[in-house]
């Protein structure tokens, strides 16, 4: 006898509000050029969270990922309470790091998997060795821009890029020009503009990301 209530919950959480990939799509999963409606929808939701801090989109991502993160956590951490902690920690990072997600580098699923695995690694160390040392993100870079400072130097060398600096919003332009044209250090620039160095860093990152997307739009 089917239990109606659990069936509806199953539908709701196993599928979230999103389509699952059909099995024939799955067989060709490594080909990135094949249409993948689920991946596209997840990417849209991430954009909404990153750019507009959209809570409705976050709720949809949560409904899709939370039960699956939980089942990973149950296998790996062998304790229900810890598995829910893993859900909470992973989804918190999805919210706070959404702006670092780069759709060109990885599917949303892969990015969330990386965040979850890294978090799970740190939680296991805490449980097994009583260590709070958070090595996960050093061991597995997040397919994104945490190491952007190194890569960005390279792509900034291309002169064509600097043509687009004028198109940046004023606050980001100011920081990008200060660092790359006047060659100020981040600290010098922070002092000069009388803003915290963290703000310099985040404006710089946003500006560089925008420049990168200009480049991709114009030269793809």
């Amino acid at each position: 006898m089917e239990n109606v209530q659990s069936q509806s919950a199953q539908t709701r959480y196993d599928k979230g509000h999103l389509a699952q990939r059909s099995s024939n799509q799955r067989n060709g999963a490594m080909k990135s050029d094949e249409p993948n409606p689920l991946a596209d929808e997840l990417a849209q939701l991430m954009m909404q969270v990153a750019n507009n801090r959209c809570k409705t989109s976050f709720a949809k991502l949560f409904s899709h990922f939370a039960p699956k993160i939980n089942s990973f956590g149950v296998q790996r951490l062998s304790q229900q309470g810890l598995a829910m902690d893993l859900v909470q920690e992973t989804m918190s990072r999805v919210w706070t790091k959404a702006h670092l997600y780069n759709a060109d580098k990885a599917a949303v699923s892969t990015w969330v998997f990386t965040v979850m695995r890294n978090q799970c690694f740190d939680m296991l160390r805490k449980v097994q060795h009583n260590r709070e040392d958070a090595f996960g993100d050093d061991i597995w870079p997040l397919f994104e821009s945490d190491d952007a400072e190194n890569n960005d130097d390279d792509f900034l060398l291309s002169a064509s890029l600097l043509q687009h600096v004028e198109e940046l919003p004023p606050l980001q332009r100011q920081v990008v020009q200060g660092i790359y044209m006047q060659e100020l250090t981040q600290q010098e620039l922070a002092d000069k503009l009388n803003i915290p160095i963290g703000t310099v860093k985040s404006r710089l990152r946003l500006g560089l990301e925008k420049l990168k997307s200009f480049m991709e739009k114009h030269y793809d």
Binding site: A9, Q10, R21, R26, N70, A107, V112, F113, T114, W140
Partner: peptide, 20 residues
Amino acid sequence: TIALSEQQFEQADAKNTAAF
């Protein structure tokens, strides 16, 4: 990592009883 993430997040999980 791509294969693991697709397996974990993009396939219907028949034995995911925790979900309900």
